[in-house]
């Protein structure tokens, strides 16, 4: 398989796709806004003194619902795709997934604790309540990843194979703990827990958004600085070391970026599968494995595809809304199978 698309046309195409996805995400929904209204309301949001029919309502919909939701989709899709690239590079396996090092299951455990804990312990303190789910999910993701990393580390070196196995074991353990919380939950809590596990961009709000936007920006700035190191890492760890890279530090950074990125994404939007797995894989098929192109292209593609998936989630059963995790899995899983079958042929 060789490179199909040159980087420049790919970036142009991804830019256009992303612009289209952003526009649709802002314009479509239970109340559809014409393009003109969307643009004018957007300008008014930015402080331009425009006025017109229904513009105030459009501004309200845009500012309170669609803009935060779109920003959430962009950040979640982008950071999940970037984390996928980092994990596939770290494990030198094009089919690795950010879930492998336990981030997702750790975050899920943290969320289950926050959701069920609220009813078990009679509610969280009022000042903490809005943030407890995010903080707990984020902390759970980081914590489990740190454990996986510790187990994989011996004599100052990190064994990626051991980390993989530790990830499987801790994912199972987290699953058991989540099962326990599920068992203890009452009916209403159970419903919240289930929906959270399916992921959703619904209910995006600025307080939940800021931490994720910051993390996404940090990861999006940091990972591309390690693009050549990731390229060298694909040759093998010793080879990369012989090329002068401090591989232990690079591995630590990759694990930390993934834990941070996936933890923040899961904390803000619940469990959304397959973006981190399929997007980098797809982009690699198009432009080849060079991380200097792969990282920024995956960021754009992940953001665009997650917005489009969210559109489907909003529109398929309108006015009801499908959890977005169902949409990404419905599209991602068959696509993944297709890649496996095609790869073997």
């Amino acid at each position: 398989m060789t490179v199909v698309v040159r980087p420049r046309p790919l970036f142009v195409a991804l830019g256009l796709l992303l612009a289209l996805a952003i526009w649709l995400s802002l314009a479509l929904g239970p109340v559809s806004l014409p393009l003109g209204d969307t643009v004018r309301a957007g300008l008014r949001l930015l402080g331009m003194p425009l006025s017109g029919d229904g513009l105030a309502r459009a501004e309200l919909i845009l500012g309170q619902i669609r803009v935060p939701r779109t920003l959430l989709g962009l950040a979640v899709g982008g950071v999940l795709a970037l984390s996928g690239v980092a994990m596939q590079g770290l494990f030198r396996n094009p089919l690795a997934d950010p879930g492998l090092v336990g981030v997702s299951s750790g975050a899920a455990l943290g969320a289950a604790f926050a959701i069920v804990g609220a009813s078990l312990f009679g509610g969280w303190p009022a000042w903490l309540a809005p943030y407890v789910l995010s903080l707990s999910a984020f902390g759970g993701g980081l914590g489990v990843t740190w454990l996986v990393y510790r187990v994989g580390r011996r004599d100052g070196q990190t064994s990626v194979a051991t980390m993989l196995l530790a990830g499987i074991a801790l994912t199972a353990l987290a699953g058991a703990a989540i099962g326990l919380f599920t068992y203890l939950a009452d009916d209403a809590t159970l419903r919240t827990l289930t929906f959270w596990n399916l992921g959703s961009l619904n209910g995006a709000s600025y307080p939940r958004l800021w931490p994720l936007l910051l993390v996404t920006a940090a990861v999006a700035v940091w990972l591309p600085r390690r693009a050549t190191a990731l390229n060298a890492l694909l040759l093998g760890e010793s080879e990369a070391r012989h090329l002068g890279f401090d591989i232990e530090r690079i591995k630590r950074e990759l694990v930390f970026c993934t834990a941070l990125g996936v933890g923040a994404a899961v904390a803000a939007a619940g469990m959304i599968g397959f973006i981190g797995l399929v997007v980098p894989h797809l982009v690699r098929l198009l432009v080849g494995p060079d991380h200097r192109v792969l990282l920024p292209a995956s960021l754009l593609a992940g953001a665009a595809l997650l917005l489009l998936a969210d559109l489907l989630a909003r529109l398929l059963l309108a006015p009801a809304e499908l959890p977005i995790g169902i949409v990404t899995a419905l599209i991602g899983a068959p696509f993944f199978l297709f890649l496996l079958v095609r790869g073997r042929a």
Binding site: N93, P94, L235, E239
Partner: peptide, 8 residues
């Protein structure tokens, strides 16, 4: 070498 990515 264990390189398994489609570099040129």
């Amino acid at each position: 070498s264990s390189l398994s990515f489609a570099f040129r």
